[in-house]
């Protein structure tokens, strides 16, 4: 029992369970799943489906944060890839592989820009990526000529609204990316190297690790993940809105990584925990919508839930709680 409670997955999972439970109370239908035309429907699937873009961003973000960096530009990269996809689909180059390749190339290029700013030019990550965060939306608008670009292409749209193995395509895509990256991190030494260069870049350099290259690469991965998320979002709404696509999604991604217990100063990271963080955020939004509270209270509730989840993870808070319940127990014992 205590072993279970000490497992690092325990608290995040508990928080997620509590939020899902709240959903169940608010709507008894919540856990209801239904199979129609070989596809599973239900609120839970919706939560998964809506978490997919954030999950994709959070995967890249975990790696960046593990090296002690941060990538604010992912939302803007989503917007750029969206604009590129939509415009390609409206042009004569509308074959699916080409569009996907172009989107990935855009993401990779953006990641390389961030990566070289951070590791070659030595600019601090938060500003280096802020530049692309600001300019990136401009670039997306430029590609879209200031309009919202829509398109008609069922094959591409299926990336966002199709289904695979009975699950929505975005969920499957996110799961595949997650497994790929997780495999690369834990079945090779990459994870260890990334963590080391985040914990102590100087000592890592002395160890013969190429810290610069590692930092460069994580931004590239983050850019690629953002490009995939961008495709999913664009395909989902069948259009690219340069102003609003992926807006503030980077904050959700960072939040998810931190809810998963990572330190923003770099070091240890865990992709499974990050995924739980993403689900917590999405499940919470669903709860707020389902509860029928006036939308103006949304932000306040969101911030309070975040605070509670964070507090639950804080050792000193748990000690206080234990102290409190201990005191009550001993009082009870005396009485």
């Amino acid at each position: 029992m205590t072993n279970l409670m000490q497992h690092r997955l325990f608290l995040p999972l508990l928080a997620l369970a509590l939020i899902l439970l709240a959903n169940l109370v608010l709507s008894p239908e919540f856990f209801h799943l239904e199979v129609k035309d070989g596809r599973v429907y239900g609120s839970l699937v919706d939560v998964l489906n809506r978490s997919a873009p954030c999950a994709l961003l959070a995967i890249g973000m975990s790696l960046v944060i593990a090296t002690g960096g941060i990538d604010l530009s992912v939302g803007a990269i989503v917007a750029i890839t969206g604009a590129v996809c939509a415009n390609l689909l409206n042009s004569s180059f509308d074959t699916l592989p080409l569009v996907i390749l172009a989107a990935l190339a855009v993401g990779l290029a953006a990641g390389m820009v961030n990566g070289s700013l951070v590791s070659i030019f030595g600019i601090q990550p938060i500003v280096a990526t802020l530049v692309l965060m600001v300019a990136g939306r401009g670039i997306a608008q430029l590609i879209n000529s200031g309009q919202i670009a829509t398109f008609q292409n069922d094959t591409f749209a299926s990336i966002g609204i199709g289904s695979l193995l009975g699950l929505p395509a975005p969920v499957v895509i996110a799961a595949v990316v997650f497994l790929l990256v997780q495999f690369a991190m834990r079945f090779t030494a990459l994870g260890l190297f990334i963590e080391a260069s985040g914990c102590n870049p100087r000592a890592s350099h002395y160890l013969g690790l190429n810290v610069r290259v590692i930092k460069f690469l994580v931004y590239c991965v983050s850019g690629l993940c953002a490009a995939i998320a961008g495709m999913v979002i664009t395909a989902d709404i069948q259009g690219a809105d340069a102003n609003n696509a992926g807006l503030w999604l980077e904050l959700d991604a960072i939040l998810a990584v931190v809810l998963g217990g990572a330190a923003l100063s770099g070091g240890r990271f865990s992709l499974p925990l990050t995924m739980i963080g993403v689900l917590i955020i999405q499940a919470m939004s669903t709860t707020i919508i389902m509860s029928g509270i006036e939308p103006k209270y949304n932000l306040i509730i969101k911030s309070l839930v975040i605070l509670v989840v964070l507090l639950l993870q804080s050792p000193s808070f748990r000690q206080q709680l234990r102290g409190l319940s201990g005191a009550r127990n001993s009082l009870g014992g005396k009485a």
């Binding site: 960072i254 306040i300 911030s303 605070l307 507090l311």
Partner: peptide, 23 residues
């Protein structure tokens, strides 16, 4: 007191203050 990371606490603060303003 709770050794929380400033980035996240102030992010929550950002949501909270904006929420208060809207209210």
């Amino acid at each position: 007191v709770y050794k929380l990371q400033p980035f996240i606490v102030t992010l929550a603060g950002m949501f909270f203050a904006r929420g208060l303003a809207t209210v």
